[in-house]
Amino acid sequence: MDSATAIGVGGGFAVIIGANVMEGGNPSSLIQIPALVLVFGATLCVTLAGGTLADAKNAVAALKKAFTGKVTPAADVVPTIVGLADKARREGLLALEDAVKDIDDELLVKGVSLAIDGNDPEEVRTILESEVIAKRRADKQAAKFFSDAGAYAPTIGIIGTVMGLVHVLENLARPEELGHLIAAAFLATLWGVMSANAMWLPIGNRLKRLSELDVARMEVVIEGVSAIQSGANPRVVRHRLVSLLPAEEQSALAEAA
């Protein structure tokens, strides 16, 4: 599990609260239930209004992935593909039928299975590339949900502040209550801006990054399946796949080898 999001979001809120304490503030003074209900409730509602119920359900699943998702570098699949290429070159594609049973990568299993069934290489590539396109679309929509929430939250917070200032104006005859009412009014803006920049937008960016890493691995798999089906030399397959990796992953793979 990659805990970057949990550390980042938790750390961001901790720093903000810590700074408030250092300035002599009381963290409990930042907690006002009406402001929290307005900012978070209205933000989620208007974000939902911009999509579909299915988008919201996918976003909930994506939220779990953002905090607990495992980052699988594309380099991790290279040795597996090279091993399959070597076995296919020595024993033929049909010999891979048992080998794919122990592989966890669904796209690699699907691609090799299609190759074993004797499908045309171009047709196999088209099918696998369609999987990548579908993956990109789903991930883009999930990330968009949280990015949209980050865009709406500050404005919702301003609405809450305006509502609070209306109450301030209603109580001008009671000066002793104005300080409390003004402070409470600005809490909505605080939570709107803070939730957007310390939670919603980072989660959206995290999902985009996870999607990029997943797609990069899938592209390596597609090239690997194509090389296996063509009967390429395992050494050539390795060089071909390594060339698709970022520099740091190439170095890590070379050290492991």
Rank of each mutant, 00 (worst) to 15 (best):
I156M: 02
A138G: 15
E131V: 04
A149R: 03
P175E: 00
A134Y: 10
Q141C: 05
G160T: 01
T126L: 11
M163W: 09
Q141D: 07
H167P: 01
I158F: 09
V124R: 06
K144T: 00
F146E: 05
L178I: 15
I159N: 05
R174W: 14
V168S: 06
L172V: 12
K144V: 00
L128V: 02
G164L: 13
T155C: 07
L169D: 10
D139W: 04
A153Y: 10
A173Q: 10
G160D: 09
I158G: 08
E131Y: 13
V166A: 08
A153H: 02
T155W: 06
S130D: 12
I127A: 03
R125F: 02
E177G: 08
G160C: 07
D139E: 08
K140M: 02
R136T: 15
I159H: 00
A138V: 07
T126K: 15
V166S: 04
Y152H: 10
A173W: 11
I159D: 01
L128H: 06
I127T: 14
M163E: 07
P154W: 03
T161W: 09
N171V: 03
P175Q: 02
Y152I: 11
R125T: 12
D148K: 09
A134W: 02
L128T: 00
L169S: 07
E129F: 13
L165F: 09
K135T: 14
G160Y: 12
G160H: 06
Y152R: 11
A153W: 01
R137G: 04
V168P: 09
P175M: 05
R137Y: 11
K135D: 15
A151T: 03
F146L: 06
A142H: 03
E170F: 13
A138I: 08
T155V: 15
G179D: 10
L169M: 14
E176N: 11
A142Q: 04
I127F: 13
Y152A: 12
V166W: 08
E129A: 01
E131Q: 02
G157I: 10
L165A: 08
D148T: 10
